[in-house]
Amino acid sequence: MTATNPCVVDSTWVLTGDGARRVKDLVGIPFTAVLDGKPYGTLSNGFVRTGTEDVVKLRTSEGHEVRLTAGHKVLTYIPKTSRYAKDAREEWVAAGDLGPGTLVRLSDNLGASWAGRGTEGQGYVLGNLVGDGTFHTYGGYGAVAFWDTDPGFESVRDYLYEQVVKLGARSDFKGWHRVSQSDQYRLKTTGIRDLAATFGIAQGRKTVTPEVERASSGFYRGFLRGLFDADGHIEGASTAGGVSIRLTSIDLPALQAVQRMLARLGVRSAIRNLKDEQVHDWGERGGEYLSQRSYRLIIAGANASRHMQVVGFLNSAKTRKWEALTSHMRRGFYKKPYTASVECVEPDGREDVYDVTVADVHAFDGNGIVLHTC
């Protein structure tokens, strides 16, 4: 390995006392770094450009990614070899020296909170919009939705109505209306559209945007709750493989953003490939069609319990299912180290890179992974 200055690219997300910010937003600006939920000041004047370097992409089996120079040190976790061995330990290793299967430490931010744009209620409205809602070209409306065939929908319906009315409604606002020949009901207003626009969400861009990632921790909780109420579900049993909370999507970047948002609230998750892109036969109708690749975000074990504590469901049926599956567990969930497993480290171009000096810990949360600083 040829070592270079320990630096990251400017698109890297860093958790600060003001919430999530990209390195490009912190160049020349002092900030408070948050690592393992604790605040640390910067000794340097924010991030500093250190040059143009070859970079590598570190990718974990759980879906975490970060782009950095090969010489940048990453905190690794070395477990005990047996029950009789000495305690597990942590060790700094250059990214270029990480091999498949190496465990890297993730920042455990349980309990972290920060101020910023957006309320919890606004977050819930936009989480539902991204999950189940839509935009109406005619009239310029944004619409949130629920299905009356989904058990537990009543609390979702009532909360959405309450929050949408707070956004402002015209005198002819008629509330919920049923979609023709469907079990779906929608609530449409220009207020939803305008709120979405302030967070970069619009027709053709109904996804988890950088503006959403920069929002307050209260907005995070609402947004994630709205998204999981719309598209999330609970699987498993405490006696066979464990209970997990899952979210499925064809939008991998959106799932990766959700994974980063969850991690900033102290909830670890993994992203798995669910279904590859496939060509299907229409049968008697003739011709073929292509189904897109899909992915699943999985929150399991103690992290699923954390999710219920800090995010949870508003949908009462999903909450009852969780309680039914876990209420008889006497010892709770087995706690695992807050780590991810390296899948690969591979060359990924050449670009401007940046570094920072953080007081005391000399490390920061980079896309959820614990990275060393200058």
Rank of each mutant, 00 (worst) to 15 (best):
N5L: 12
V8H: 00
L15R: 04
G17P: 09
F31S: 01
D36V: 05
P39E: 14
T50R: 14
K57Y: 01
L68E: 10
V74G: 06
T81W: 07
G96I: 07
P100Q: 12
L110G: 01
S113P: 05
D132R: 12
Y138G: 04
Y141C: 11
W147N: 15
P151I: 02
E154R: 02
S171V: 06
S180I: 00
D183M: 07
T189L: 03
A196L: 07
A196Y: 08
F199C: 08
T207H: 05
P210M: 04
R214I: 02
R221W: 03
R221V: 01
R225Y: 02
G232D: 13
I234Y: 07
E235Q: 14
A237V: 05
L247M: 13
V258H: 05
L262V: 05
A263V: 05
A270E: 14
L274S: 08
Q278V: 06
H280G: 04
W282L: 12
G286S: 04
L290V: 15
R306L: 14
F313L: 11
T319W: 08
R331F: 13
G332V: 08
G332W: 01
K336P: 03
D352L: 03
V353W: 00
Y354I: 10
D360E: 14
F364M: 13
N367L: 03
I369L: 12
